[in-house]
Design a protein around this nucleic acid. Sequence first.
DNA 1: TCAATCAACTTTGTATACAATCGATAGGCG
DNA 2: CGCCTATCGATTGTATACAAAGTTGATTGA
Lengths: 226, 226
Amino acid sequence: MTTVGKSHSRTAQALREALEDDIATGRYPPGSRLDEVTLANRFAVSRTPIREALIELSMAGLVEIRPHRGTFVRDIGIPRLVEMFQVMAELEAMCVRLACRRMTAEEQHALQEAHAACVSAAETGSPDNYFHANERFHEAIYVGSHNSFLAEQARALQNRLKAYRRLQLRVRNRVRNSLSEHQAIVDAVLAGDAERAENVLRSHILIQGERFNDFVASLGDARKIG
Amino acid sequence: MTTVGKSHSRTAQALREALEDDIATGRYPPGSRLDEVTLANRFAVSRTPIREALIELSMAGLVEIRPHRGTFVRDIGIPRLVEMFQVMAELEAMCVRLACRRMTAEEQHALQEAHAACVSAAETGSPDNYFHANERFHEAIYVGSHNSFLAEQARALQNRLKAYRRLQLRVRNRVRNSLSEHQAIVDAVLAGDAERAENVLRSHILIQGERFNDFVASLGDARKIG
DNA sequence: TCAATCAACTTTGTATACAATCGATAGGCG
DNA sequence: CGCCTATCGATTGTATACAAAGTTGATTGA
Protein backbone atom coordinates (compact mmCIF):
# COMPACT_ATOMS: atom_id res chain seq x y z
CA MET A 1 0.00 0.00 0.00
CA THR A 2 1.31 3.36 -1.00
CA THR A 3 0.55 6.67 0.63
CA VAL A 4 0.31 9.77 -1.43
CA GLY A 5 1.55 13.27 -0.63
CA LYS A 6 -1.19 15.75 0.03
CA SER A 7 0.71 18.79 -1.20
CA HIS A 8 -2.00 19.70 -3.66
CA SER A 9 -4.87 19.30 -1.27
CA ARG A 10 -6.48 17.41 -4.10
CA THR A 11 -5.84 13.74 -3.85
CA ALA A 12 -6.66 13.16 -7.49
CA GLN A 13 -3.84 15.40 -8.68
CA ALA A 14 -1.30 13.69 -6.45
CA LEU A 15 -2.58 10.35 -7.64
CA ARG A 16 -2.17 11.39 -11.24
CA GLU A 17 1.48 12.23 -10.66
CA ALA A 18 2.09 8.98 -8.83
CA LEU A 19 0.49 7.00 -11.63
CA GLU A 20 2.38 8.99 -14.26
CA ASP A 21 5.59 8.01 -12.61
CA ASP A 22 4.54 4.40 -12.30
CA ILE A 23 3.74 4.28 -15.98
CA ALA A 24 6.96 6.03 -16.91
CA THR A 25 9.07 3.68 -14.83
CA GLY A 26 7.36 0.63 -16.22
CA ARG A 27 5.53 -0.50 -13.10
CA TYR A 28 2.47 -0.52 -15.31
CA PRO A 29 3.67 -1.61 -18.75
CA PRO A 30 1.86 -0.61 -21.95
CA GLY A 31 -1.34 -2.53 -22.45
CA SER A 32 -1.72 -3.37 -18.79
CA ARG A 33 -5.02 -2.78 -17.15
CA LEU A 34 -5.49 -0.27 -14.35
CA ASP A 35 -8.14 -1.68 -12.09
CA GLU A 36 -9.92 0.97 -10.08
CA VAL A 37 -10.49 -1.02 -6.92
CA THR A 38 -6.94 -2.36 -6.88
CA LEU A 39 -5.59 1.17 -7.23
CA ALA A 40 -7.98 2.40 -4.58
CA ASN A 41 -6.68 -0.22 -2.17
CA ARG A 42 -3.08 0.50 -3.06
CA PHE A 43 -3.37 4.19 -2.32
CA ALA A 44 -5.87 3.74 0.50
CA VAL A 45 -8.47 6.03 -1.04
CA SER A 46 -11.88 5.50 -2.57
CA ARG A 47 -12.54 4.93 -6.25
CA THR A 48 -13.70 8.50 -6.79
CA PRO A 49 -10.30 10.25 -6.78
CA ILE A 50 -8.82 7.28 -8.61
CA ARG A 51 -11.34 7.74 -11.42
CA GLU A 52 -10.62 11.45 -11.58
CA ALA A 53 -6.90 10.77 -11.81
CA LEU A 54 -7.47 8.24 -14.58
CA ILE A 55 -9.51 10.78 -16.51
CA GLU A 56 -6.65 13.25 -16.26
CA LEU A 57 -4.25 10.61 -17.52
CA SER A 58 -6.54 9.80 -20.43
CA MET A 59 -6.71 13.48 -21.36
CA ALA A 60 -2.92 13.56 -21.29
CA GLY A 61 -2.96 10.57 -23.62
CA LEU A 62 -1.15 8.22 -21.27
CA VAL A 63 -4.03 5.80 -20.85
CA GLU A 64 -7.10 4.89 -22.81
CA ILE A 65 -10.48 4.59 -21.15
CA ARG A 66 -12.71 2.15 -22.92
CA PRO A 67 -16.24 2.70 -21.60
CA HIS A 68 -17.50 -0.11 -19.42
CA ARG A 69 -14.35 -2.06 -20.14
CA GLY A 70 -11.60 -0.42 -18.15
CA THR A 71 -8.58 1.81 -18.56
CA PHE A 72 -5.40 0.54 -20.13
CA VAL A 73 -1.93 1.97 -20.37
CA ARG A 74 -1.65 3.13 -23.94
CA ASP A 75 0.67 1.07 -26.00
CA ILE A 76 2.43 3.74 -27.96
CA GLY A 77 3.73 2.00 -31.03
CA ILE A 78 7.07 2.87 -32.53
CA PRO A 79 5.56 4.72 -35.51
CA ARG A 80 3.46 6.90 -33.27
CA LEU A 81 6.45 7.56 -31.05
CA VAL A 82 8.37 8.81 -34.07
CA GLU A 83 5.45 11.09 -34.88
CA MET A 84 5.48 12.47 -31.37
CA PHE A 85 9.18 13.18 -31.48
CA GLN A 86 8.68 14.95 -34.80
CA VAL A 87 6.13 17.27 -33.26
CA MET A 88 8.30 17.74 -30.19
CA ALA A 89 11.20 18.71 -32.44
CA GLU A 90 9.08 21.31 -34.17
CA LEU A 91 7.83 22.80 -30.92
CA GLU A 92 11.34 23.06 -29.52
CA ALA A 93 12.60 24.53 -32.76
CA MET A 94 9.93 27.20 -32.51
CA CYS A 95 10.90 27.86 -28.90
CA VAL A 96 14.55 28.40 -29.66
CA ARG A 97 13.79 30.51 -32.71
CA LEU A 98 11.78 32.87 -30.54
CA ALA A 99 14.29 32.62 -27.72
CA CYS A 100 17.07 33.83 -29.99
CA ARG A 101 15.55 37.27 -30.33
CA ARG A 102 13.64 37.49 -27.06
CA MET A 103 15.87 36.14 -24.31
CA THR A 104 16.98 38.61 -21.70
CA ALA A 105 20.58 38.69 -20.50
CA GLU A 106 19.53 36.92 -17.32
CA GLU A 107 17.80 34.18 -19.28
CA GLN A 108 20.86 33.72 -21.47
CA HIS A 109 22.90 33.39 -18.32
CA ALA A 110 20.44 30.85 -16.94
CA LEU A 111 20.78 28.83 -20.15
CA GLN A 112 24.55 28.75 -19.77
CA GLU A 113 24.18 27.74 -16.13
CA ALA A 114 21.85 24.92 -17.11
CA HIS A 115 24.32 23.74 -19.70
CA ALA A 116 27.13 23.81 -17.15
CA ALA A 117 24.96 21.77 -14.79
CA CYS A 118 24.47 19.21 -17.56
CA VAL A 119 28.21 18.93 -18.01
CA SER A 120 28.89 18.29 -14.36
CA ALA A 121 25.94 15.90 -14.12
CA ALA A 122 27.38 13.95 -17.03
CA GLU A 123 30.69 13.68 -15.19
CA THR A 124 29.09 12.15 -12.12
CA GLY A 125 27.90 9.37 -14.37
CA SER A 126 24.42 9.18 -12.88
CA PRO A 127 21.92 8.98 -15.74
CA ASP A 128 19.15 10.28 -13.54
CA ASN A 129 21.12 13.37 -12.60
CA TYR A 130 21.82 14.12 -16.23
CA PHE A 131 18.19 13.52 -17.09
CA HIS A 132 17.02 16.21 -14.71
CA ALA A 133 19.76 18.64 -15.65
CA ASN A 134 18.75 18.08 -19.26
CA GLU A 135 15.17 18.90 -18.44
CA ARG A 136 16.23 22.16 -16.86
CA PHE A 137 18.25 23.03 -19.95
CA HIS A 138 15.25 22.64 -22.21
CA GLU A 139 13.05 24.41 -19.71
CA ALA A 140 15.35 27.41 -19.97
CA ILE A 141 14.68 27.51 -23.70
CA TYR A 142 10.94 27.23 -23.21
CA VAL A 143 10.97 30.16 -20.82
CA GLY A 144 13.18 32.12 -23.18
CA SER A 145 10.61 31.87 -25.94
CA HIS A 146 8.41 34.31 -24.00
CA ASN A 147 5.41 32.47 -25.32
CA SER A 148 3.84 30.93 -22.26
CA PHE A 149 1.32 28.89 -24.19
CA LEU A 150 4.02 27.40 -26.37
CA ALA A 151 6.03 26.66 -23.25
CA GLU A 152 3.07 24.83 -21.73
CA GLN A 153 2.57 22.74 -24.83
CA ALA A 154 6.25 21.88 -24.97
CA ARG A 155 6.29 20.87 -21.31
CA ALA A 156 3.18 18.74 -21.73
CA LEU A 157 4.61 16.85 -24.67
CA GLN A 158 8.00 16.50 -23.02
CA ASN A 159 6.18 14.96 -20.11
CA ARG A 160 4.42 12.44 -22.29
CA LEU A 161 7.73 11.43 -23.80
CA LYS A 162 9.52 11.38 -20.47
CA ALA A 163 9.75 7.63 -20.15
CA TYR A 164 11.19 7.23 -23.63
CA ARG A 165 13.62 10.12 -23.35
CA ARG A 166 14.90 8.58 -20.14
CA LEU A 167 15.63 5.34 -21.96
CA GLN A 168 17.41 7.19 -24.75
CA LEU A 169 20.11 8.26 -22.34
CA ARG A 170 21.15 4.66 -21.91
CA VAL A 171 22.04 4.40 -25.58
CA ARG A 172 25.79 4.27 -26.11
CA ASN A 173 27.45 7.68 -26.29
CA ARG A 174 24.09 9.40 -26.18
CA VAL A 175 24.98 11.59 -23.22
CA ARG A 176 28.25 12.71 -24.78
CA ASN A 177 26.56 13.57 -28.07
CA SER A 178 23.71 15.28 -26.27
CA LEU A 179 26.20 17.52 -24.50
CA SER A 180 27.94 18.65 -27.66
CA GLU A 181 24.58 19.37 -29.25
CA HIS A 182 23.66 21.47 -26.23
CA GLN A 183 26.89 23.40 -26.62
CA ALA A 184 26.08 24.12 -30.26
CA ILE A 185 22.64 25.33 -29.27
CA VAL A 186 24.00 27.65 -26.61
CA ASP A 187 26.52 29.07 -29.07
CA ALA A 188 23.87 29.70 -31.70
CA VAL A 189 21.51 31.34 -29.23
CA LEU A 190 24.20 33.63 -27.85
CA ALA A 191 25.18 34.52 -31.41
CA GLY A 192 21.54 35.27 -32.17
CA ASP A 193 21.64 32.88 -35.10
CA ALA A 194 18.01 31.75 -35.02
CA GLU A 195 18.16 29.60 -38.11
CA ARG A 196 21.16 27.64 -36.93
CA ALA A 197 19.81 27.23 -33.39
CA GLU A 198 16.54 26.00 -34.81
CA ASN A 199 18.17 23.39 -37.00
CA VAL A 200 20.53 22.09 -34.34
CA LEU A 201 17.78 21.78 -31.76
CA ARG A 202 15.41 20.14 -34.22
CA SER A 203 17.86 17.40 -35.02
CA HIS A 204 18.81 17.17 -31.35
CA ILE A 205 15.25 16.03 -30.70
CA LEU A 206 14.68 14.14 -33.92
CA ILE A 207 17.71 11.96 -33.40
CA GLN A 208 15.95 10.41 -30.43
CA GLY A 209 13.07 9.36 -32.62
CA GLU A 210 15.14 8.28 -35.58
CA ARG A 211 17.76 6.03 -34.11
CA PHE A 212 15.38 3.30 -33.32
CA ASN A 213 17.69 0.41 -33.77
CA ASP A 214 19.46 1.46 -30.62
CA PHE A 215 16.19 2.52 -29.07
CA VAL A 216 14.37 -0.74 -29.49
CA ALA A 217 17.42 -2.59 -28.29
CA SER A 218 17.47 -0.60 -25.08
CA LEU A 219 13.73 -1.03 -24.71
CA GLY A 220 14.26 -4.65 -23.78
CA ASP A 221 15.91 -3.58 -20.54
CA ALA A 222 13.31 -0.96 -19.83
CA ARG A 223 11.13 -2.95 -17.47
CA LYS A 224 13.97 -3.78 -15.12
CA ILE A 225 14.83 -0.16 -14.42
CA GLY A 226 11.67 0.95 -12.63
CA MET B 1 -33.06 21.93 -18.12
CA THR B 2 -31.05 20.42 -20.91
CA THR B 3 -30.86 16.78 -21.88
CA VAL B 4 -27.67 15.34 -23.18
CA GLY B 5 -27.17 12.84 -25.98
CA LYS B 6 -26.05 9.44 -24.81
CA SER B 7 -24.13 8.55 -27.95
CA HIS B 8 -20.93 7.92 -26.03
CA SER B 9 -22.53 5.84 -23.31
CA ARG B 10 -20.46 7.93 -20.97
CA THR B 11 -22.41 10.89 -19.73
CA ALA B 12 -19.29 12.77 -18.73
CA GLN B 13 -18.00 12.86 -22.28
CA ALA B 14 -21.26 14.13 -23.68
CA LEU B 15 -21.36 16.72 -20.92
CA ARG B 16 -17.88 17.88 -21.80
CA GLU B 17 -18.89 18.48 -25.39
CA ALA B 18 -22.02 20.32 -24.35
CA LEU B 19 -20.06 22.53 -21.98
CA GLU B 20 -17.38 23.10 -24.59
CA ASP B 21 -20.00 24.41 -26.93
CA ASP B 22 -21.58 26.56 -24.24
CA ILE B 23 -18.22 28.12 -23.48
CA ALA B 24 -17.44 28.62 -27.15
CA THR B 25 -20.76 30.28 -27.86
CA GLY B 26 -20.45 32.53 -24.88
CA ARG B 27 -23.20 31.10 -22.73
CA TYR B 28 -20.57 30.88 -20.03
CA PRO B 29 -18.35 33.93 -20.54
CA PRO B 30 -14.70 33.96 -19.47
CA GLY B 31 -14.31 34.31 -15.73
CA SER B 32 -17.75 32.98 -14.98
CA ARG B 33 -18.14 30.33 -12.38
CA LEU B 34 -19.37 26.84 -13.19
CA ASP B 35 -21.31 25.67 -10.19
CA GLU B 36 -21.48 21.91 -9.94
CA VAL B 37 -24.97 21.62 -8.48
CA THR B 38 -26.41 24.14 -10.91
CA LEU B 39 -24.93 22.21 -13.82
CA ALA B 40 -26.13 18.94 -12.32
CA ASN B 41 -29.66 20.32 -12.19
CA ARG B 42 -29.44 21.74 -15.68
CA PHE B 43 -28.42 18.43 -17.23
CA ALA B 44 -30.46 16.33 -14.83
CA VAL B 45 -27.52 14.24 -13.67
CA SER B 46 -25.62 13.95 -10.44
CA ARG B 47 -22.50 15.89 -9.57
CA THR B 48 -20.22 12.97 -10.31
CA PRO B 49 -20.28 13.06 -14.13
CA ILE B 50 -20.32 16.86 -13.96
CA ARG B 51 -17.10 16.83 -12.00
CA GLU B 52 -15.53 14.39 -14.44
CA ALA B 53 -16.51 16.60 -17.36
CA LEU B 54 -15.04 19.64 -15.63
CA ILE B 55 -11.78 17.79 -15.08
CA GLU B 56 -11.64 17.01 -18.79
CA LEU B 57 -12.25 20.66 -19.59
CA SER B 58 -9.52 21.74 -17.22
CA MET B 59 -7.10 19.33 -18.87
CA ALA B 60 -8.02 20.85 -22.20
CA GLY B 61 -7.27 24.27 -20.75
CA LEU B 62 -10.77 25.63 -21.14
CA VAL B 63 -11.48 26.06 -17.45
CA GLU B 64 -9.43 26.39 -14.31
CA ILE B 65 -10.17 24.37 -11.21
CA ARG B 66 -9.16 26.13 -8.05
CA PRO B 67 -9.21 23.57 -5.23
CA HIS B 68 -12.02 24.09 -2.77
CA ARG B 69 -13.02 27.27 -4.57
CA GLY B 70 -14.67 26.23 -7.78
CA THR B 71 -14.09 26.02 -11.51
CA PHE B 72 -14.01 29.12 -13.67
CA VAL B 73 -14.03 29.63 -17.41
CA ARG B 74 -10.50 30.64 -18.24
CA ASP B 75 -10.22 34.21 -19.27
CA ILE B 76 -7.97 33.93 -22.27
CA GLY B 77 -6.40 37.34 -22.57
CA ILE B 78 -5.53 38.86 -25.92
CA PRO B 79 -1.79 38.26 -25.50
CA ARG B 80 -2.33 34.60 -24.75
CA LEU B 81 -4.68 34.32 -27.69
CA VAL B 82 -1.95 35.66 -29.95
CA GLU B 83 0.41 33.06 -28.52
CA MET B 84 -2.06 30.31 -29.24
CA PHE B 85 -2.52 31.42 -32.82
CA GLN B 86 1.25 31.47 -33.23
CA VAL B 87 1.49 27.86 -32.13
CA MET B 88 -1.49 26.96 -34.29
CA ALA B 89 0.22 28.55 -37.28
CA GLU B 90 3.34 26.51 -36.69
CA LEU B 91 1.41 23.25 -36.34
CA GLU B 92 -0.50 23.89 -39.55
CA ALA B 93 2.68 24.89 -41.34
CA MET B 94 4.20 21.59 -40.29
CA CYS B 95 1.11 19.76 -41.51
CA VAL B 96 1.17 21.30 -44.95
CA ARG B 97 4.91 20.83 -45.29
CA LEU B 98 4.49 17.12 -44.71
CA ALA B 99 1.33 17.03 -46.81
CA CYS B 100 3.19 18.41 -49.79
CA ARG B 101 5.30 15.31 -50.15
CA ARG B 102 2.98 12.72 -48.62
CA MET B 103 -0.51 13.38 -49.91
CA THR B 104 -2.00 10.71 -52.11
CA ALA B 105 -3.82 11.60 -55.31
CA GLU B 106 -7.12 10.95 -53.54
CA GLU B 107 -6.18 13.25 -50.71
CA GLN B 108 -5.19 15.98 -53.12
CA HIS B 109 -8.55 15.60 -54.76
CA ALA B 110 -10.28 15.79 -51.39
CA LEU B 111 -8.41 19.01 -50.67
CA GLN B 112 -9.64 20.53 -53.92
CA GLU B 113 -13.16 19.36 -53.14
CA ALA B 114 -12.98 20.97 -49.72
CA HIS B 115 -11.80 24.21 -51.27
CA ALA B 116 -14.63 24.14 -53.77
CA ALA B 117 -17.06 23.60 -50.92
CA CYS B 118 -15.63 26.67 -49.21
CA VAL B 119 -16.21 28.73 -52.34
CA SER B 120 -19.84 27.72 -52.64
CA ALA B 121 -20.39 28.15 -48.92
CA ALA B 122 -19.01 31.66 -49.18
CA GLU B 123 -21.50 32.42 -51.95
CA THR B 124 -24.47 31.39 -49.85
CA GLY B 125 -23.44 34.09 -47.43
CA SER B 126 -23.99 32.01 -44.31
CA PRO B 127 -21.00 32.48 -42.01
CA ASP B 128 -21.72 29.21 -40.26
CA ASN B 129 -21.68 27.26 -43.49
CA TYR B 130 -18.36 28.77 -44.42
CA PHE B 131 -17.01 28.07 -40.97
CA HIS B 132 -17.68 24.36 -41.28
CA ALA B 133 -16.45 24.15 -44.84
CA ASN B 134 -13.31 25.89 -43.67
CA GLU B 135 -12.85 23.32 -40.93
CA ARG B 136 -13.08 20.54 -43.47
CA PHE B 137 -10.48 22.26 -45.63
CA HIS B 138 -7.98 22.35 -42.81
CA GLU B 139 -8.89 18.83 -41.78
CA ALA B 140 -7.91 17.67 -45.27
CA ILE B 141 -4.46 19.12 -44.68
CA TYR B 142 -4.14 17.47 -41.28
CA VAL B 143 -4.99 14.11 -42.77
CA GLY B 144 -2.61 14.73 -45.64
CA SER B 145 0.31 15.14 -43.23
CA HIS B 146 0.15 11.41 -42.52
CA ASN B 147 1.23 12.14 -38.98
CA SER B 148 -1.73 11.16 -36.88
CA PHE B 149 -0.33 12.56 -33.67
CA LEU B 150 0.30 15.91 -35.29
CA ALA B 151 -3.21 15.83 -36.72
CA GLU B 152 -4.63 15.20 -33.25
CA GLN B 153 -2.70 18.09 -31.78
CA ALA B 154 -3.80 20.38 -34.57
CA ARG B 155 -7.44 19.41 -34.13
CA ALA B 156 -7.27 19.87 -30.38
CA LEU B 157 -5.84 23.36 -30.68
CA GLN B 158 -8.20 24.29 -33.49
CA ASN B 159 -10.99 23.25 -31.17
CA ARG B 160 -9.75 25.45 -28.37
CA LEU B 161 -9.63 28.40 -30.75
CA LYS B 162 -12.97 27.59 -32.32
CA ALA B 163 -14.91 30.38 -30.69
CA TYR B 164 -12.38 33.00 -31.72
CA ARG B 165 -11.94 31.72 -35.26
CA ARG B 166 -15.68 31.89 -35.64
CA LEU B 167 -15.66 35.53 -34.67
CA GLN B 168 -12.85 36.27 -37.12
CA LEU B 169 -15.12 35.44 -40.02
CA ARG B 170 -17.26 38.42 -39.15
CA VAL B 171 -14.41 40.79 -39.76
CA ARG B 172 -14.85 42.78 -42.98
CA ASN B 173 -13.65 40.97 -46.10
CA ARG B 174 -12.21 38.16 -44.03
CA VAL B 175 -14.07 35.44 -45.90
CA ARG B 176 -12.99 36.78 -49.28
CA ASN B 177 -9.34 36.97 -48.19
CA SER B 178 -9.54 33.57 -46.59
CA LEU B 179 -10.70 32.09 -49.85
CA SER B 180 -7.85 33.50 -51.89
CA GLU B 181 -5.38 32.28 -49.29
CA HIS B 182 -6.92 28.82 -49.54
CA GLN B 183 -6.49 28.94 -53.30
CA ALA B 184 -2.83 29.81 -52.91
CA ILE B 185 -2.37 26.92 -50.50
CA VAL B 186 -4.02 24.45 -52.86
CA ASP B 187 -1.84 25.67 -55.72
CA ALA B 188 1.34 25.32 -53.69
CA VAL B 189 0.42 21.84 -52.46
CA LEU B 190 -0.42 20.60 -55.95
CA ALA B 191 2.84 22.07 -57.20
CA GLY B 192 4.67 20.29 -54.41
CA ASP B 193 6.17 23.58 -53.27
CA ALA B 194 6.47 22.85 -49.56
CA GLU B 195 8.21 26.06 -48.61
CA ARG B 196 5.65 28.25 -50.28
CA ALA B 197 2.72 26.27 -48.94
CA GLU B 198 4.16 26.48 -45.46
CA ASN B 199 4.60 30.22 -45.61
CA VAL B 200 1.18 30.93 -47.05
CA LEU B 201 -0.59 28.74 -44.52
CA ARG B 202 1.41 30.15 -41.64
CA SER B 203 0.39 33.69 -42.43
CA HIS B 204 -3.15 32.50 -43.17
CA ILE B 205 -3.38 31.50 -39.52
CA LEU B 206 -1.24 34.24 -38.06
CA ILE B 207 -3.32 36.97 -39.65
CA GLN B 208 -6.16 35.96 -37.39
CA GLY B 209 -4.04 36.57 -34.33
CA GLU B 210 -2.39 39.71 -35.58
CA ARG B 211 -5.23 41.86 -36.79
CA PHE B 212 -6.52 42.52 -33.36
CA ASN B 213 -7.90 45.93 -33.95
CA ASP B 214 -10.64 44.34 -35.97
CA PHE B 215 -10.73 41.37 -33.68
CA VAL B 216 -11.30 43.26 -30.47
CA ALA B 217 -13.89 45.38 -32.19
CA SER B 218 -15.82 42.29 -33.19
CA LEU B 219 -15.40 40.85 -29.73
CA GLY B 220 -17.90 43.32 -28.39
CA ASP B 221 -20.64 41.59 -30.33
CA ALA B 222 -19.48 38.15 -29.36
CA ARG B 223 -21.77 37.53 -26.44
CA LYS B 224 -24.90 38.22 -28.46
CA ILE B 225 -24.19 35.51 -30.99
CA GLY B 226 -24.39 32.38 -28.79
C1' DT C 1 -17.11 53.82 13.03
C1' DC C 2 -13.90 50.48 11.56
C1' DA C 3 -11.48 46.37 11.97
C1' DA C 4 -10.86 41.79 13.46
C1' DT C 5 -12.58 37.43 14.83
C1' DC C 6 -15.78 33.79 14.93
C1' DA C 7 -19.54 31.15 13.43
C1' DA C 8 -22.78 29.49 10.19
C1' DC C 9 -23.64 28.47 5.48
C1' DT C 10 -22.21 27.27 0.96
C1' DT C 11 -19.49 24.60 -2.03
C1' DT C 12 -16.08 21.46 -3.12
C1' DG C 13 -13.74 16.84 -2.14
C1' DT C 14 -14.22 12.01 -0.82
C1' DA C 15 -16.53 7.79 0.46
C1' DT C 16 -20.02 4.50 -0.11
C1' DA C 17 -24.06 2.51 -2.15
C1' DC C 18 -26.63 1.33 -6.17
C1' DA C 19 -27.36 0.54 -11.25
C1' DA C 20 -25.94 -0.79 -15.76
C1' DT C 21 -23.00 -2.91 -18.91
C1' DC C 22 -19.60 -6.21 -20.42
C1' DG C 23 -17.18 -10.67 -20.42
C1' DA C 24 -16.88 -15.38 -19.35
C1' DT C 25 -18.64 -19.73 -18.63
C1' DA C 26 -21.84 -23.30 -18.86
C1' DG C 27 -25.60 -25.38 -20.99
C1' DG C 28 -28.41 -26.46 -24.90
C1' DC C 29 -29.19 -26.92 -29.76
C1' DG C 30 -27.88 -27.89 -34.48
C1' DC D 1 -18.46 -32.14 -31.47
C1' DG D 2 -18.79 -27.32 -32.37
C1' DC D 3 -21.25 -23.11 -32.08
C1' DC D 4 -24.58 -20.13 -30.31
C1' DT D 5 -27.09 -18.30 -26.39
C1' DA D 6 -28.29 -17.21 -21.84
C1' DT D 7 -27.23 -16.36 -17.21
C1' DC D 8 -24.04 -15.09 -13.63
C1' DG D 9 -20.11 -12.63 -11.94
C1' DA D 10 -17.16 -8.78 -12.01
C1' DT D 11 -16.16 -4.10 -13.08
C1' DT D 12 -17.32 0.32 -14.56
C1' DG D 13 -20.69 4.34 -14.38
C1' DT D 14 -23.77 7.15 -11.59
C1' DA D 15 -26.15 8.74 -7.54
C1' DT D 16 -26.25 10.01 -2.86
C1' DA D 17 -24.36 10.76 1.65
C1' DC D 18 -20.78 12.58 4.46
C1' DA D 19 -16.53 15.41 5.50
C1' DA D 20 -13.61 19.30 4.99
C1' DA D 21 -12.42 23.67 3.43
C1' DG D 22 -13.65 28.39 2.09
C1' DT D 23 -16.44 32.44 2.02
C1' DT D 24 -19.49 35.63 3.91
C1' DG D 25 -21.75 37.96 7.30
C1' DA D 26 -22.54 39.56 11.82
C1' DT D 27 -21.07 40.77 16.27
C1' DT D 28 -17.95 42.57 19.54
C1' DG D 29 -14.20 45.15 20.88
C1' DA D 30 -11.17 49.13 20.44
